[in-house]
Design a protein around this nucleic acid. Sequence first.
DNA 1: TTAATAAATAAACATTGTTTAATAAATAAA
DNA 2: TTTATTTATTAAACAATGTTTATTTATTAA
Lengths: 204, 204
Amino acid sequence: MGTEERKEREKMEMRQLIVKTALKLFAENGIENVSIRAIAEKIEYSPGAIYSYFKDKGEIIHAIHTEGFEKLYALQRSLDGIKNPVDKLGQMGKLYINFALENKDYYDLMFIAKGIAEKINEKKEWDAGERSYNYLRDTVNDCIEQGYINDKNVDAVTFAIWGFVHGMAALIIRGRCAMMPDEFIQQTLSGSFNFFKTHLITNK
Amino acid sequence: MGTEERKEREKMEMRQLIVKTALKLFAENGIENVSIRAIAEKIEYSPGAIYSYFKDKGEIIHAIHTEGFEKLYALQRSLDGIKNPVDKLGQMGKLYINFALENKDYYDLMFIAKGIAEKINEKKEWDAGERSYNYLRDTVNDCIEQGYINDKNVDAVTFAIWGFVHGMAALIIRGRCAMMPDEFIQQTLSGSFNFFKTHLITNK
DNA sequence: TTAATAAATAAACATTGTTTAATAAATAAA
DNA sequence: TTTATTTATTAAACAATGTTTATTTATTAA
């Protein structure tokens, strides 16, 4: 009898419901203003019930973080068809920044938030992130091999590019550009992009 | 009689003691693991006493944040003597990263931490940050005017450079490079620097 | 010496994440 | 179907947090 399987399924559904609800509340009230109690109330369970599905709050956040990486990686894979690695790199940059600014909660958990880092090490589960990182790295490597980027150190170039896009995204998301008007930020952002692209790519 | 002045002085000293103690505890236990109660105990006062000197915990953190900007700006000003703006820019980059990695607590509060952003807006006191930003911007401007950087958009270039160094620092500080061995990070970091420097500066 | 002011404290409050012992529900065994 | 057992859920409590309030203590002014 398949009651075992059904229960397993129900457990997964409950986990998903909790994660979904948590994410919704995060978006509404900001990540740090969402309590276990609030999540419990929203799904009409007692706070304690949540602990049958997640070891602690960090695990809920970690689940969302992993979900975010799924989304990002899926976006990256949508570039599979682009043959020219420079074009691919440019598109990936835009895609990355867009993802960051349109999914601030996800992005924050994935690349900025503090508690997460411990969970990542504890679980050795930066796998999700590594997959995305390698996708970028491979593209950079193609650029180098095909003579578009004049630098042999793949990791250094990859880290530079990652740092560049992450840095801008993080400054914006964490309110360090709040003094600038929104449209100015947008303009500057695309200006910075052009600057980077123009100078780092060797025109063959 | 100077009792008014003395009291004012004592109040300042107490504020400073609280800030100094908070910073020390931050360094020892991590920013998020320091409570008002812990600070109070360390200086041998009751928790409530602290509220005679700071409106709330955020104000203590904000004071440290401002102190951090004093330190960073002082470091920047040590480059005043460098005539060539490209050299100056390079030195500033190194100096910035070093500051970030050697003063992670300060840097975190200044450029990454969340609560701070609200205080900054609330107080309109990004002045401290703006001074440092303008110092960078002026140097970038010199580079452009003297033909070392081939791009007319000062703000875009400045933001790109800031994003670049901040991005790398933030990824390291927030543990997103924890899977890489330390020496690899150091190598990659300087490699990224070279990459950036080599390609963005037009050799006259 | 007394009155007014300021500083510091102890105690309490509300909120957090989390644990525990008790209850209700669902399943398996008889 | 009835009973026993396992599982899911809850209510209540715990410890820690930031903060407020009424009270006491210390300091200053009269």
